[in-house]
Nucleic acid binder design. Structure first.
Lengths: 349, 349
DNA sequence: TTGTAGGCGTTATCAT
DNA sequence: ATGATAACGCCTACAA
């Protein structure tokens, strides 16, 4: 009943007490060869009594796999977004479902000890790589090390690589069309930070592309806002927007962390949502619900993505040579209460 | 330059190519005994050329430690709160600082395979246990397995155990006093879900105790609300409160996930914060900033807690017999914009 | 300063 | 149906 940690509790000890050889115990446990009912029961009794569990390191060494996957997350220093955190939770859950453990690695820069441990010390069987840049050294590193991996997000055209991503370009396009249908003629895109965009952050670039294209298609006026991932930046950004472009009546966002600030700036300007100003975009689903008013938005299906990414990874681990798969997800826009018909322009009497 | 994964890349191969024995390579790497400059350089050259890194499993097996710690989180199925997720990020960061990896285990019920793997397969050197119940089987399990661990939260009186926690009772007391000082006479405690409270969730019980005591001390009327961890529950809860106890003018909360709903219910009732209704409580710091209006609250210092917990754990791993330490943190209440003097009661004319 | 060899706890290939 | 025994890759006395 007590712990197997302390003293010399190992497969040999079990074998000795059960009066069999170590291999028999091993096989009784794995079921990889027949063991008579009698001995199996004897072995199981001893195991139950002592609370034995095989040592993971020894097993990993012998089997050549760790039953663990790595999850590379952005460094926590710059606080993770709701979406990212949600995704981490979902991945851990999805992994637990298939009895895999998850090793977390916060990795941003290129000199990252934690990331290096992951890829080159055989700590994990495969890796889920979050927050991929359009040009991402880590992708090359993983490939170089022959480590099976699946990207959450995708770099520039790379058919060999396996990934799942959100269709930012398409979804922002849908958002723009939704706003256009409501009669908005001048709209803004609330993108992420200038630094992130400068490093070639895929979602930002694709959101921009989708925005530019859709704005053009619908003959709208569009302005792009580069904005830090926090409430303060959001507030400054929107305050400035309202001052410089008072004609803007709607916003599509890919920057959920800035939203509280957006609210505040609109409040201060006396603009009410959705009466005077519409907001939509791409956000983690519960975040959309938590907004006031509830946000009409494309809800990122983090749990789904996690499950899909996990099964892709499992597949890739078991057959690294199989053709790479890409999954571009495009969740529908859920209509809530943050968008409405464009306000009628003021007329001087 | 390329990966050590593929073929037979191990310490023996390095030794062969450098023309030395395996032990020399090992010592050159660990620095645990003198190696002549010449051979060290020769070895290093080979290592650099091949991009060799020692196999973690083999090392763990030989050394008897994994350089990994486990982080036991609540199951992700019921979405984690901001505070919890924030904490996860902070822990990972703190661990990376000291070159430790973090294995995540979502563990709620008592039959948890992932948790069992953690404690009994020697996958980790120590464990950080989140969301401890006042009576918590996992604590016994860890102790039983002689696994060094530190609790985030603490069970009932247990001087042997090492933990760091927030002083919920004291902090809620401060919140109540703050409200009392502002003239509020009838206040509510927004506690967490009935189920959580029923399972003996420490923070809830301690918040309640602190609330009851402080309310009594200041001669106030106090009502406790048990409320699910989501916006909808918050909305229902507060709607009901305003209907049944219209005299309530302030709220102290330990349930940040319900706050968006609280906002909505107050909006619908035409009560404005802080003019008609004050809100304060204990929340993750950025959550307080993101509230509208910004929340006067005790900001939980998650990064601090993580760092402290980590160093306690490291210490405990290196000397399991050292006396247990307890850290009860009591962050100050940051004054923002969600509390104000109690509104003057209505008078029928 | 360096080499030899045994052990860490499993799995898996031989035999029997 | 079961036992020996050699890997797996690294660390570390013990020798030289």
């Amino acid at each position: 009943m007590s712990g197997p940690q302390g003293s010399g509790m190992n497969i040999g000890e079990i074998a000795r007490r059960a009066g069999v050889s170590r291999s028999t115990v091993s096989y009784a446990l794995s079921g990889k060869r027949q063991v008579s009912d009698a001995t199996r029961r004897r072995i199981q009794d001893v195991i139950d009594e002592l609370g034995y569990r095989p040592n993971a390191s020894a097993r990993a060494l012998a089997e050549g796999r760790t039953r663990t996957i790595g999850l590379v997350i952005p460094p926590a220093s710059k606080r993770l977004t709701h979406m990212q955190l949600d995704f981490v939770g979902s991945v851990v859950e999805a992994a637990a479902q298939v009895d895999l453990d998850v090793l977390l690695s916060p990795s941003g820069g290129d000199h990252d000890r934690s990331f290096e441990r992951l890829v080159s010390e055989s700590r994990v069987d495969g890796v889920l790589l979050m927050e991929i840049r359009i040009e991402d050294a880590r992708v090359d590193r993983l490939r170089d090390a022959r480590m099976p991996f699946v990207g959450i997000g995708h770099p520039a055209n790379d058919p060999q690589m396996c990934w799942v991503d959100i269709d930012y370009a398409g979804l922002i396009g849908h958002c723009v069309r939704h706003l256009a249908d409501l009669g908005h003629r001048s709209i803004a895109l609330l993108n992420r930070s200038p630094e992130l965009v400068a490093t070639g952050y895929g979602p930002s670039h694709r959101a921009r592309a989708g925005f530019v294209r859709a704005v053009e298609e619908h003959g709208l006026k569009g302005v792009e806002l580069l904005c830090g991932d926090d409430a303060r930046s959001g507030q400054e950004c929107i305050a400035e927007l309202l001052a410089n472009d008072p004609g803007i009546t709607a916003l599509a966002t890919v920057n959920e962390a800035a939203l509280p600030g957006v609210q505040r700036a609109l409040d201060q300007a006396g603009r009410s949502v959705p009466r005077d100003f519409s907001i939509t975009g791409i956000v983690a689903s519960h975040w959309a619900e938590d907004f006031r008013p509830a946000l009409t938005a494309a809800d990122v299906p983090t749990a789904d993505m996690a499950t899909q990414a996990m099964s892709l990874l499992v597949e890739r681990i078991s057959d690294p040579t199989a053709p790479a798969q890409h999954l571009l997800m495009s969740p529908p826009i859920t209509l809530r209460h943050s968008t409405a018909a464009a306000p009628v322009p003021h007329r001087e009497p």
